[in-house]
């Protein structure tokens, strides 16, 4: 009988030679506990954050896109759509927030795919660790990206003269909602990352999903101006819900049912794609 350990760690570092394997076999556990899963997820998040700090160039698109697109769209479409740049901003900024957050999701999938091909993942697979931690860890780290992307968009908007009616609280609420939704939707791209053959194909597939979703929504134009069938589509497009919810929060400071819809969509995404990703990761080689 082995003695009861105060903490149920599987194997401790011992200076002594390895004991009878039968003892070690008896000490093994059949599955990973919730506590271990969490600490492994955070360890993987730590790894992802380290890598982000070491490769700051990957923040280029996250930082550049909101700055560039906000200015570009505002000056190009502002006059045509809303009469002038200034009145277009309340419509545009939430749209850009949704767009940048979605593009950032794409990076999540692409980078996971790249990561999976590295030798270190052979080790992760051979370790007695939770199968969800290598997927969920980087996604926690990615919250930083969504935060940067969403905040920069609002800052850029303010610089161009956007004065959100929802005040600081409203904007903060909108940012939190965007970050959460981004995280939830990223599970879909994580799944694509685990099934696609290469990082490039992840990018290709993701673009094909993202482009129609962002542009066939109310993100950049009022939905009423669209032909009937398209307007109908924008109404069911999840991106529209995110955009509307962000507008409600940031521009009016009100919690509407759009916020609820957005959260629900996020939840559905997680419920569907988290298990799919784990299954596909397990099968992956």
């Amino acid at each position: 009988m082995s003695t009861v350990l105060t903490e149920p760690t599987a194997v401790r570092p011992r200076p002594a030679p390895v004991t009878d394997p039968a003892v070690i076999v008896a000490r093994t556990r059949a599955r990973v506990g919730l506590g271990d899963t969490l600490s492994q997820t955070f360890a993987m998040a730590w790894r992802a954050l380290k890598k982000m700090r070491r490769n700051p160039e990957q923040f280029f698109d996250v930082a550049l896109q909101p700055l560039l697109f906000t200015a570009m769209f505002a000056y190009v479409f502002g006059g045509a759509i809303s009469g002038d740049v200034h009145s277009y901003l309340p419509l545009l900024i939430p749209g850009i927030v949704a767009q940048t957050v979605l593009t950032t999701c794409m990076a999540t999938g692409t980078q996971l795919r790249e990561d999976l091909d590295k030798g270190v993942f052979d080790r992760f697979r051979s370790l007695p660790m939770s199968r969800i931690a290598p997927l969920a860890g980087p996604m926690i780290a990615d919250l930083v990206r969504y935060l940067i992307a969403a905040s920069l968009t609002y800052l850029m908007g303010v610089a161009l003269g956007y004065r959100p009616g929802g005040g600081v609280l409203g904007v903060l609420g909108a940012i939190v909602l965007a970050v959460l939704t981004g995280w939830a939707i990223a599970w879909a791209f994580t799944w694509i990352g685990t099934v696609a053959r290469s990082a490039r194909s992840v990018q290709g597939i993701s673009m094909m999903i993202l482009f129609p979703l962002t542009f066939l929504s109310n993100a950049f134009v009022p939905a009423k101006t669209l032909p009937g069938w398209l307007e109908a589509f924008t109404k069911v497009n999840p991106v529209s819900h995110l955009v509307s919810a962000t507008r409600d929060l940031a521009n009016n400071g009100v919690l509407t049912w759009q916020v609820g819809w957005t959260l629900l969509i996020g939840l559905v995404m997680v419920v569907i794609f988290m298990p799919l990703s784990v299954v596909s990761y397990k099968r992956h080689l």
């Binding site: 093994t28 556990r29 270190v120 052979d122 080790r123 051979s126 370790l127 660790m129």
Partner: peptide, 21 residues
């Protein structure tokens, strides 16, 4: 497999360590 993973150490043909760390 989870039990087996607690009994083994694997050193792969291509170094399975993280390049950036």
């Amino acid at each position: 497999p989870h039990r087996v993973r607690q009994l083994i150490g694997v050193t792969g043909q291509y170094a399975s360590v993280d390049e950036d760390l």
